[in-house]
Write a protein that binds this DNA or RNA. Structure first.
Lengths: 148, 148
DNA sequence: CACTAATAGGACTGTATCGGTGCTAATTGG
DNA sequence: CCAATTAGCACCGATACAGTCCTATTAGTG
């Protein structure tokens, strides 16, 4: 385990797609269609990514979302935190006073150390790394034809 | 986020306690009492840790659990995997054929790489590291007196 | 040879979180 | 004015998690 949420996985797909054409802007519907993801879910994710400062948005007709930073400046850790909140393996690690055992529990400091290590691991991979691998758009029409 | 399950946290507490006196054996009830954790839960965790090969057990009266390996030979990753299963951040990373987007989704390989990095981070911390910090047993009676 | 103290393993349940959907603004271009 | 699109809630169902309990099985003890 130690799974990331499925939504985070989707968010990564979206961000990688954007990173392939960093200058271009995309509407949520467009991305959902191209990646074969449910469109309301994509809309929700884009809002969260926007709030986290990873995207800029243009409202109204012809609007859409663009990367707020260059692909090499955004890490997987950023995306994970945008969707799931701060990386903290345990309750103890997020703040003090939550854990009843706290005064006698010495593992809190260790978990914080470990959390930082994990965070660092996630931070080594940037969007441009993810985008480098070969790729091609999903053709929904083609897929449906094959399945029917 | 990217939280470990609460049970995993408990399991870590238990293993660290054992690591403080590696030669000694403990009954589940004893550990629950000492750490202030619910006893059935502790029993359940010990069973999982046993199955994972991290503990040895002696049944019957006077029985209990002991560490199967030296404290420095058991890492946090081992404990996490014992409770939560294999560390794999995404469905794609656990095996192939699960993800519908698979043939066109190139991020799978990246997630596997990231999973390994996280695994490695968790592997750097061993039980003896966790056990080194100052510590003293929880006194339930004392706590209750303070709270009342 | 019972009785008691333990582990072994499973089934069951309430609850919280997650994934997903829908609705109602606000904004912009044609 | 209308259509396209983002912004922000509120809601709901399924799933997984934390916790409990019950029934073997095993081993020490009187």
């Amino acid at each position: 385990m130690l799974r990331i949420a499925k939504l985070t996985d989707y968010a990564a797909l979206l961000m990688v797609r954007l990173a392939r054409e960093p200058a271009r802007c995309f509407s949520a519907a467009q991305l959902a269609d191209e990646l074969g993801l449910p469109s309301p879910t994509v809309a929700k994710l884009m809002k969260r990514l926007l709030r986290a400062g990873l995207l800029t948005s243009v409202r109204g007709a012809g609007g859409g979302y663009c990367l707020a930073l260059a692909p090499h400046a955004i890490s997987v850790a950023d995306v994970v935190e945008a969707i799931e909140g701060r990386v903290a393996l345990t309750e103890c690690a997020v703040g003090k006073g939550v854990c009843a055992l706290e005064p006698d529990c010495a593992t809190g400091a260790n978990w914080q150390r470990i959390s930082r290590a994990v965070r660092a691991a996630l931070d080594t991979v940037r969007l441009d790394d993810m985008a480098r691998t070969p790729w091609q758009p999903v053709r929904m029409q083609g897929l449906k034809e094959k399945l029917s």
